[in-house]
Amino acid sequence: MRVWQALVLVVVLLGWHLATRNPQAAFFFGEPLKVAVRIWQWFTVGAGTLEVGTGETTWFTINFPAEIYPHLLVTLTETLLAFVIGTALALVVGLWLALSPLASAILDPYIKAANSMPRVILAPIFAMWFGLGIWSKVALAVTLVFFIVFFNVYQGVKEVSPVVLANARMLGANARQLLRSVYLPSATSWVFSSLHTSVGLAFVGAIVGEYLGSARGVGYLILQAEGTFDINTVFAGIVVLTLFALVLDGLVGLAEKRLMKWQPKSGETEKL
């Protein structure tokens, strides 16, 4: 299977290379070799610095050996903060509304309205509220992550078997024990299925925020390249972001395997 997957990648890259041998096509679609060279230069050539602080006060300065690192650190920081904050908020609100039918009924139209809103248009508002630092990007990305995880948590709790709940209550389980031993395990599989999608959305929020106003970040590098019609640098930024998104998704997958050991595999279920 790995060989076939690698072969698909080779075929795509070879097709891209052959299709862009024409200078006109290369102008619009870039060249894979030049994209690879640009990524190599980002990580090996040039030096960069990142000043950490608030406003006009600088707490400390980080020196990096190559150009991409300060930009990559900013984007990854925004993404991870948005991912963690959005997931935590979604877990709390999802559990609360799933276990409180009255609150759920009251807030239902407002949640649907907020979810239907194209949240990218909130970016200028967040820039006014939080400034052009990382927090405006984090706020935008949180709005993208929150609803994906929230609806999965809500549905996971609602899908708890009434028989399991009745048996747990007959055994004397209190509300806290029901939450820990019944509701949370039921929602966990739903949560992890949403986290894989949320990883990409956290990156989307961070990059869109950097597009609209930033002096640091991979999105800033891509925006500068677009302004000079440097398509190879644009593709280099896309490749770098994709690779790190895959790394973060892989970490989520490892956490899922570790926390979901209690869940039987498909083969084991068939044997049972």
Rank of each mutant, 00 (worst) to 15 (best):
A88E: 04
V252P: 08
A66W: 11
T87H: 03
L254N: 05
L140V: 03
F43L: 07
F64I: 01
D230M: 01
L140T: 01
V199T: 00
G227N: 09
D108E: 08
V199N: 02
V182G: 06
P101F: 00
V164C: 04
E210Q: 01
F29Q: 10
A105G: 01
F64N: 06
L223M: 14
E51T: 10
R21Q: 15
G46L: 02
V247W: 04
G86I: 01
L201V: 07
Q177N: 03
G86Q: 02
T44R: 07
V52C: 05
G205W: 00
S104N: 10
N152P: 06
A66M: 08
W40L: 14
G15D: 10
H17P: 09
M170K: 13
T57L: 13
K158Y: 08
T57A: 13
V11Q: 11
T75Q: 01
N232L: 05
N232M: 06
N22W: 13
W129R: 00
A236N: 04
T233P: 06
E256I: 08
F146S: 04
Q155E: 14
W129E: 02
I207Y: 00
A245P: 04
M170P: 08
W135H: 07
L212W: 03
K261E: 12
L132G: 06
T233R: 10
G217N: 01
L165R: 10
T20D: 07
L241H: 06
H71K: 05
S116F: 02
G131I: 00
P264M: 10
A26R: 15
V11C: 13
L107Y: 04
A25I: 08
V142F: 03
E268S: 15
T233K: 10
V37S: 13
L97H: 01
S100G: 01
S198G: 11
L259M: 14
R180W: 14
M117I: 08
F60S: 08
A141F: 05
R216N: 13
A187R: 05
L13Y: 13
A88Y: 08
L223V: 11
V164M: 06
L201Q: 11
S189N: 11
T197G: 12
V37W: 15
E268H: 15
L14E: 11
L18T: 14
H196C: 02
L72I: 02
N22Q: 14
P185Y: 04
A168R: 02
I134K: 07
I148E: 13
A25W: 11
G250Q: 11
S186V: 08
K261D: 12
G55Q: 12
T143C: 10
T269K: 14
I111Q: 04
T61L: 09
L165I: 06
V45L: 13
V37D: 14
I62K: 10
T57C: 03
L221E: 04
P264Y: 09
L243H: 09
L13C: 13
N232I: 04
R258F: 15
Q41G: 11
A19G: 10
A215S: 14
S161R: 05
L122H: 00
T77F: 13
Q177R: 07
L201I: 03
G219Q: 09
Q177E: 12
V208Q: 02
G237A: 06
T75N: 08
